[in-house]
Amino acid sequence: MSTTPTISWSEDGSARPDQPTRSAHWHSESAMPPPRRVVVADDSTKAATAYQLACEGTALLWRGDFHNARQLLRAMSRRIDRKSNPVRPDATAAESFHLHRRARGHRARVLGRLLVLLADDHSLTLRRAPDVRRACTEAYGPPRGDRAVSLTELLGVIGAHQWREKGVEVPALGDGVRIHPHYGVFSPVRGEYVDLVARTPLPAHPRTAFDLGTGTGVLAAVLARRGVAHVLATDIGPRALVCARENADRLGLADRIEVTGPALYPEGRADLVVCNPPWLPARPTSTVEQGVYDPDGTMLHGFLHGLADHLHPGGEGWLVLSDLAEHLGLRTRADLLTAITTAGLHVTDRLDTSPHHPRIHDTTDPLHSARAAEVTSLWRLTPD
């Protein structure tokens, strides 16, 4: 018996038991449970009605024009903004962060209740709907019957497909060279951490390197382009493993980059171990957020405590980490230094850089003060 969750609804909106119902598989990348009540919505549905139903927990299965669905989503979003409570002026940085996350979670839940139905070939049978079959196959794999997803998730799938086609330019790899992220894999749009790895002096004659949590494989590619003969790249995410392999092939580096997993550390030792863990010790709410949030700093501590046992004599580890968590009151610098010392490691050098992304200039962002003060560092570590 299949354990795949499903949703059910009546096309005429009737809840009478004698009326026929339809059902479809339910899918949510953020692990939202299937809605208990689903009603049909179309071009005649008012934004106020949709917003009220969604706030009450009722999902709306869209049967109208695709572009009108997007307009309805924007109208619901505006209502959330008008009713949301701003972060208190007297709140601490940590309180502001948690209030901000709570507000974003509420927004995601409400907007996530506007649903669309993908047919058994991943097509979207709505007026003026784009062809989403390829994008959905890339994100979800081969189709397996009708599938209901939130419109917000589908728009993310479409956007990810466009990024995958276009790619992200990475100057550290050369003029015009691009990395192509897959859906659910963190994109290297913030280049400061890549530049740190590209300009930090390498240990003497490194022949082997590990890139832990490789994601798109961008840091593995930088190391290979810098002359490391064999780079072993790991990740715990199946999508990341496929993505990193494809990027290594695309860049002509498949003979120097070996992608393996799911694991943090591979077997054996290396001359250099690089790790760019998620920067914020909090719980992710979706696959994509796993590139930003690391519950309890699990990956950070796993890297630190495993480093000495995976280095050749004379080797070193590079920890690439933002101090945003420190400015948000989620971790202190003393916490980080204690974790390094407890792992039997010594800091030999630290290189810093400031991010240049647009959000540091957005004064309406409730986390603006923390973002404006952020510094990203590459910590060079060796065993005691």
Rank of each mutant, 00 (worst) to 15 (best):
V116L: 06
V116D: 01
V116P: 00
L117Y: 10
L118P: 00
A119C: 09
D120F: 04
D120M: 12
D121R: 11
D121V: 09
D121H: 10
D121I: 05
H122M: 11
H122N: 14
S123G: 13
S123P: 09
L124C: 08
L124W: 07
T125A: 14
L126K: 06
R127Y: 09
R128T: 08
A129E: 07
P130K: 00
D131P: 03
D131H: 04
R133Y: 08
R133S: 02
R134D: 07
R134L: 08
A135R: 09
A135V: 00
C136F: 00
C136H: 06
C136I: 08
E138C: 06
G141F: 05
G141Y: 09
P142N: 14
P142L: 12
P142H: 13
P143V: 13
R144W: 14
R144Q: 15
R144I: 15
R144T: 15
D146R: 15
R147V: 15
R147T: 15
R147L: 15
A148Y: 15
A148Q: 15
V149D: 03
V149L: 15
V149N: 08
S150W: 02
L151S: 05
L151I: 08
T152S: 13
E153C: 09
E153P: 12
L154V: 07
L154G: 05
L155F: 03
L155K: 09
L155M: 10
G156V: 02
V157P: 07
V157D: 06
I158D: 07
I158E: 12
G159R: 07
G159Y: 06
G159Q: 09
A160C: 06
A160E: 10
W163H: 11
W163A: 12
R164Y: 10
E165F: 13
E165L: 15
E165N: 11
G167L: 00
G167K: 02
G167R: 03
G167P: 00
G167C: 03
V168F: 01
V168S: 04
V168G: 07
V168Q: 06
V168L: 03
E169S: 10
E169H: 04
P171W: 00
A172I: 01
L173N: 08
D175I: 07
G176D: 03
V177M: 01
R178M: 11
R178Q: 10
R178W: 02
I179T: 05
I179S: 00
H180W: 04
H182E: 12
H182Y: 13
Y183C: 11
Y183T: 12
G184D: 04
G184S: 04
G184P: 12
G184K: 01
V185C: 03
V185W: 04
V185P: 06
F186M: 02
S187K: 07
S187F: 11
P188K: 00
P188M: 01
V189P: 08
G191D: 04
E192W: 03
E192N: 08
E192R: 04
Y193D: 11
V194N: 05
V194E: 01
V194A: 08
V194C: 09
D195M: 09
D195P: 03
L196Y: 05
V197A: 12
V197M: 05
V197F: 00
